[in-house]
């Protein structure tokens, strides 16, 4: 009887450590990025001075296009052999689902994540393809730097 009593006294209080661990878990769950499929982490984005931070409040749906330095385009984790064909399909699907008239722009923002070493000519071809397929809202993603362009 007395032995069990002493064992009871020695038992460490796990509640504070559990509390702390749950707080850490909460933190990591909140910062975890669920859009990882859309984003190609291998891209080296251009660094600019102080562009506006990403505000995706009123942009509607987003279509993220990752343009690699060799000009290939990755969308939703897969390299698209023909970006024109892909965008044409997307455009038709969005138009049908959202009931968009042929003369109206699509309520989707094309978000271009372009590698810093993509040539301007390649970029313009992709932008033209977006425009041709009625994706008139185009955003360019850059890496924000707090200080100026050249420190």
């Amino acid at each position: 009887m007395s032995m069990s009593h002493s064992a009871e006294q020695c038992e460490p209080n796990l509640v504070p450590i559990l509390d702390m661990v749950f707080q850490l878990i909460t933190f990591f769950m909140l910062v975890i990025n669920f859009k990882a499929v859309d984003v190609d982490k291998n891209l080296v984005l251009p660094v600019v001075g102080a562009a506006d931070p990403s505000d995706q409040g009123d942009q509607g749906d987003l279509l993220v296009l990752n343009v690699r330095s060799d000009g290939s385009v990755q969308v939703r984790g897969a390299i698209q052999p023909s970006i024109d064909l892909f965008l044409r399909g997307e455009s038709r699907a969005v138009a049908v689902l959202r009931d968009v008239k042929p003369d109206q722009p699509l309520p989707v923002t094309a978000v271009l994540r372009v590698d810093r070493k993509v040539a301007f000519e390649t970029l313009m071809k992709i932008v033209d393809t977006c425009k041709a397929n009625r994706f008139s809202k185009i955003d360019f993603v850059v890496v924000r730097k707090k200080d100026d362009i050249n420190p």
């Binding site: 990591f28 600019v48 185009i138 955003d139």
Partner: peptide, 29 residues
């Protein structure tokens, strides 16, 4: 419970990758 919580914590720590601060420039060409 603590064991499970630590396993979850370990998973989140190992998969955590701090991403750079991204910004967007909206242009209408």
């Amino acid at each position: 419970m603590l064991d499970m919580a630590f396993q979850l914590l370990a998973f989140f720590i190992l998969t955590f990758r701090a991403s750079p601060i991204e910004a967007q420039i909206s242009l209408r060409l």
